[in-house]
Design a protein around this nucleic acid. Structure first.
Lengths: 213, 213
DNA sequence: GGTTTTACTGAATCGCTGTTCAGTTAGGTT
DNA sequence: AACCTAACTGAACAGCGATTCAGTAAAACC
């Protein structure tokens, strides 16, 4: 039987775990199933990850970093910032990409009461925000768009005590965009009849356009 | 020991189940804990609900109907429609209300792979949409606001094959608002630093104002 | 080629928790 | 007051699935 170095095996196992979660859910995830998917013994999985809980936490981090990697590549193109922003948003979107979505909803649920998973998600989320935020700043500097007006004047300065740096505004803007995307993903799962992928895509474009005109 | 009629007990148990899910999560929910919370035997819980799975499904439906009940009361006031819309949205919001939120994220996760739960969530979601949608239509008729312009002209007619009834537009609008709220709730859980309740409230107001000017 | 390291397995364990079931008793009915 | 229905319990069962552990054999190292 072929043996592999620890790091390679670990990656294989993580990938298998992600697939398993994606296809049958965290709920019914068994170590044995992950092992079976690779034709290995359950003991080996525990050998590498010590505990199921740790395996799951690592799997989420793995999947998250994967998605981020692709997003960063999309963000590092030579295209204009506004186009790169669209590309990244499209990749994040629950439709039209290979990006897994169910796993994140399961992840949110796991993060509710597991501090390890929760902090993983916090940092992943911050990284996404950074990517978007930087693209927004780039677009502003290139004068491809600017912050829509009502935003800055009304809400921001009136209610928020936070400073008004461009970076901070961009960060808030990114937060709103990601929130909208997450919410639409949930809608897509529970009411696929009421939102087609195209509709959804149009809505997102409109949202972004309204934030950055 | 005091005995109660089946329906009363059932309600008590459902309430206890909801509390338990809210406080420790679906993940670690044990029938015994639910029973302990009421000083009852685990057997009784099964006696009334036959299976744990059924108990959980019933608990979600119960919690959902509860929230809807309150929302409907807020929607049936004598206030102007725009105000009622705000009230309902405020109640749905992850901040400033007693409405439980963690339970819904757990619920989404459960619904991913459990068709029973999934359909419960679909209908609950549709009911929320109906409430909002009707308020929107009422507000339009009273000329308290109208659909923001870019919306109707650009996205709706250009991309969507769906009809352009006022009711349909209102429904779509409700969908977007609910999606945004759901997404913000997730943000609030994983990055409470980046969004204060007030900020969030302001963002939602802005979103609604931008949909209905 | 021998030795050490380390990936890997199979079988056994063991705790946990949903469910069963035979029996008990409260409370309404007549 | 006898009775009957239905709420309720406690103890046992049963199965699942994570983890353990003693042992095997590939590689890597010398």
């Amino acid at each position: 039987m072929s043996r592999k170095s620890a790091s390679v095996r670990r990656d294989e196992i993580l990938a298998a775990t992600v697939e398993e979660i994606e296809s049958t859910g965290l709920r019914t995830l068994r170590v044995a199933d992950v092992a079976a998917r690779l034709g290995l013994s359950p003991s080996l999985v525990i050998y590498h990850f010590v505990t199921k809980e740790a395996l799951v936490a690592a799997a989420f981090a793995h999947a998250g970093e994967n998605d981020l990697y692709r997003a960063r590549r999309l963000a590092a193109t030579q295209k204009p910032a506004s186009q790169r922003l669209r590309d990244v948003v499209q990749w994040y979107m629950p439709t039209g990409s290979t990006r897994s979505w169910k796993i994140w909803i399961d992840g949110w649920s796991a993060g509710l009461f597991d501090d390890g998973v929760k902090s993983t998600f916090s940092t992943l989320d911050r990284e996404w925000k950074t990517i978007l935020s930087e693209l927004i700043v780039a677009g502003l500097e290139a004068e491809e768009f600017r912050f829509s007006h009502g935003r800055m004047a009304t809400e921001a300065s009136a209610h928020e005590p936070t400073g008004t740096t461009v970076a901070e505004l961009a960060d808030d803007c990114a937060t709103r965009i990601l929130a909208y995307l997450d919410g639409l993903a949930v809608q897509l799962i529970f009411n696929p009849e009421s939102v087609s992928p195209q509709t959804l895509s149009a809505w997102v474009d409109a949202f972004v356009a309204r934030e950055l005109e």
